[in-house]
Amino acid sequence: MILELCEEAQDFGRSALGAIEAAGGDRLVQAAEADPAQRQAAIEPVLAGLGAWQLEPRRNLEEMEAAAALCRSAGHWALPYPVAARLCRPAAGDFDGLLVVSDVEPAAPVAGLGLRWAAAGLDGQGYAATARPAPAAPRRSAFVTRLDLQPAARVDTADLALALTLPCWTLLGMLDRAMALTCAYVLERQQFGQPLASFQGVQFQLTDAEVERVGVEELAKYALWSIESGRPDAVDDALALRAAAVEAAEIVFRVAHQLHGAIGFCDETTISWMSRYSAPLRRLPLGLTATRTELTRRLGRQGLAGLFSSPSSTSQ
């Protein structure tokens, strides 16, 4: 049992965290919102400098883990760029990235990037996708735009699983940051002559949120391993991760906002930006209920792979 990303991947994640910080960190999303046309020019060189486009997550275990670490670091800064989708670009075809889409109003946060997108439905149907112009300013849309789809070849199970899993690593990075920001805030903010952190009502909310975050971290590693090891139920594992990650995000951001109080709604706090820009990852391709419905449909009566997933193993 090896339950941590390899050292190289962890190092790569740390380098990415530093490189994005050096390029502007939290200001990147604010600048992109103020001037959407500049976001590509501001972010792509940073990722290229890290060697992100040389990563081929499906080539070997280390590269897949490095891709996951990069997505997490991007999430830490709410990087307004579809890093996960780009890292999932399919080997075949002339595409810059792979998006998983719903069959109802397919959309993704890729407005104005001018990239060539492949897309996959949850049934594995492949598409060539074209992003429409942004329907609204990013402050409202968070760069989400409708996609026009043209049917193409089916998408490999592992590709689909990876395209579901890597965005959850980005969301995990956002949860890491939301928890860090909230812990720092309650230690600093004083009311009734003492830090908010000294109140048990505050402490218990934090622990409940942290249990969710750390649970996503473990499920995210498992889903990655499931793809790496070629497991046939990798898509189920990815959907299980997604269901848990979206549920966790609801809890973590609710607690983060509650404990920040009114200042947490304001642009001057990072949590406000994190919260808003987490929305596309939580809503697309499917929100919590729809993700769970799809997972339930796929599990049927077989259940989720685990200690007792063979029917004969349950009833002693």
Binding site: M1, L3, E4, V214, G215, E218, L219, K221, Y222, A240, A243, A244, R292, T293, L295, T296, L299, G303, L304, G306, L307
Partner: peptide
């Protein structure tokens, strides 16, 4: 009911989550 089977699936995910958290502590 479909909703109940949805809760069942959610519990399977939660069971996996708890198992992985146990493994994390063991590790």
């Amino acid at each position: 009911p479909e909703e109940l089977r949805g809760s069942w699936a959610r519990m399977l995910v939660r069971a996996r989550r708890a198992r992985l958290l146990a493994y994390r502590v063991v590790d």
